[in-house]
Simulated assay, not measured.
Amino acid sequence: MTDIPAVRPPLPPFTEESARAKVQAAEDAWNSRDPERVALAYTEDSVWRNRDRFLTGRAEIRAFLADKWARELDYRLRKELWAFTGNRISVRFEYEWHDAGGQWFRSHGNEQWEFADDGLMRRREASINDVPIAPGDRRIA
């Protein structure tokens, strides 16, 4: 397991610039499709709601992500800052992926993030909807 930095900048309270940097860092990490790398951005006891799933802790997050990217093939994500205040950031996002049968999907959603003082995310609330798309309708390469 990779060592976790004691501090993960940018740190709250967020400015527009630091909130945008945090969102871009999250997009870059998720696009790596590396569950270990992504899980390190969360506190050891981080609490998630992802659609209808409720997770607690980095180990559950890591396992969830490994399963996700085993099913959601060729996953590509785009995140956009929606709002920020203090130690919270809200984003809208969409990502595209296909299943093992070759059906492509675009998943739309929003997330609310809450950060600890050290810059690790301690809470994530995600609402997501999936729409089947034709391969020619993809927007994210």
Rank of each mutant, 00 (worst) to 15 (best):
M1N: 12
M1L: 13
D3W: 12
D3E: 15
P5Q: 14
P5D: 12
R8E: 11
P10D: 04
P10H: 04
P10R: 05
P10W: 08
T15F: 09
E16K: 06
E17L: 12
E17Q: 14
S18E: 03
A19F: 00
A21V: 05
Q24V: 05
A25R: 03
A26G: 06
W30C: 03
W30Q: 01
S32M: 04
S32N: 03
R33H: 09
D34C: 08
D34H: 06
R37L: 14
R37Q: 14
V38L: 12
A39E: 04
Y42M: 09
E44V: 08
S46K: 01
V47H: 09
V47G: 00
R49I: 11
N50Q: 15
R51N: 14
D52Y: 11
R53I: 11
R53C: 06
L55M: 15
T56Q: 03
T56S: 07
T56D: 00
G57R: 01
R58C: 01
A59N: 11
E60I: 04
E60Y: 04
R62W: 07
F64K: 04
A66L: 12
K68N: 08
K68P: 02
A70P: 06
A70S: 15
L73D: 08
Y75A: 03
R78Q: 08
K79E: 10
F84I: 01
T85W: 05
G86L: 08
N87Y: 01
N87V: 01
N87M: 06
I89W: 00
I89G: 00
V91M: 06
R92M: 12
Y95V: 00
W97C: 02
W97A: 01
A100I: 09
A100K: 14
G102S: 07
G102R: 12
Q103G: 07
W104S: 00
F105C: 05
F105W: 13
R106G: 01
R106H: 06
S107R: 13
H108F: 15
N110E: 10
Q112D: 08
W113T: 01
E114T: 02
F115T: 02
A116Y: 06
A116K: 07
A116R: 09
D117Y: 07
G119H: 02
R124W: 12
R124G: 05
R124A: 05
A126Y: 06
S127G: 13
I128W: 10
I128R: 04
P132D: 07
P132T: 10
P132Y: 13
A134P: 01
G136W: 12
G136P: 03
D137G: 10
R139K: 14
I140P: 02
I140F: 09
